[in-house]
């Protein structure tokens, strides 16, 4: 039995809102193995994004912890947690979240630039650029490298975002409703791209409220349902 890449047991997260305690995640048990594709299906507001943020090292759970490769990421010192977000996970957002001032190519490259000083950046610049171009080509945007996000369609923006998430060869790709903001056709294309990436060996966790997406994932991995702050099914 291979060791879990990402794992959490009875993970809890609650918010204080207007003096009341809001228990969003009430005890999540999840484990993701290398090469696996996990889909999490849940209604809007069920806490899918919150779960993904916890797995991605964005914010602390109220109780319990997230174990990555045998280590609790929230026990890491601050700098190491930044490193974790940068190197070990790639995040794809529902609303793309590209930087509007940068071109598609720069948006992809920035993931590699962000933790490098000017010197090591200059040394590796050519290789970084090549990799970013190759990724853009891989997601089908060869002709759009110099476009700014405002000049790209929703599907194209999400492709740039996926290329950015893959830039540092993350161990796991976390996708938060990657098709949620797209029409059915475009969404299907994005989903196609993600499944292809999975075929190439990319570990990923996709959350969605869309049964169609879940159905696509069913054939190749596990689908879990997020209900009442807990995951069911295996």
């Amino acid at each position: 039995m291979p060791r879990d890449l990402l794992q959490a047991t009875s993970l809890k997260r609650s918010f204080h809102e207007g003096g009341r305690e809001l228990h969003v995640l009430r005890g999540i048990d999840i484990n993701v193995q290398r090469g696996q594709m996990v889909a999490i299906l849940g209604a809007s507001g069920s806490g899918k994004s919150t779960l993904l943020h916890l797995l991605g090292g964005f914010e602390r759970p109220t109780a319990c912890s997230v174990i990555f490769d045998g280590r609790n990421i929230y026990d890491l010192p601050g700098g190491k947690l930044d490193h974790y977000r940068n190197q070990h996970v790639g995040f794809v957002f529902q609303f793309y979240h590209l930087l509007p001032e940068l071109t598609a190519l720069e948006n992809v490259m920035i993931a590699a630039m962000i933790r490098r000083g000017p010197l090591s950046w200059l040394a590796g610049q050519g290789a970084t650029r090549q990799r970013a171009l190759a990724l853009l080509e891989r997601v089908g945007l060869r002709e759009r490298t110099r476009h700014r996000p405002a000049k790209l369609s929703g599907g194209e923006r999400q492709r740039v975002a996926i290329a950015r998430a893959l830039m540092n060869q993350p161990d796991v790709l976390l996708a938060d409703e990657p098709t949620g903001n797209l029409d059915r056709n475009t969404g299907a294309n994005i989903l196609q791209l993600l499944t292809e990436l999975h075929d190439e060996g990319q570990t990923m966790v996709i959350v969605t409220h869309d049964e169609h997406v879940a159905a696509r994932a069913e054939s190749r991995g596990s689908v879990r349902r997020l209900v009442d702050g807990q995951l069911d099914g295996l």
């Binding site: 490193h83 977000r85 940068n86 995040f91 993931a111 962000i114």
Partner: peptide, 8 residues
């Protein structure tokens, strides 16, 4: 976004 993709 910058923080999410790893900026300290």
């Amino acid at each position: 976004v910058l923080r999410a993709i790893g900026a300290s």
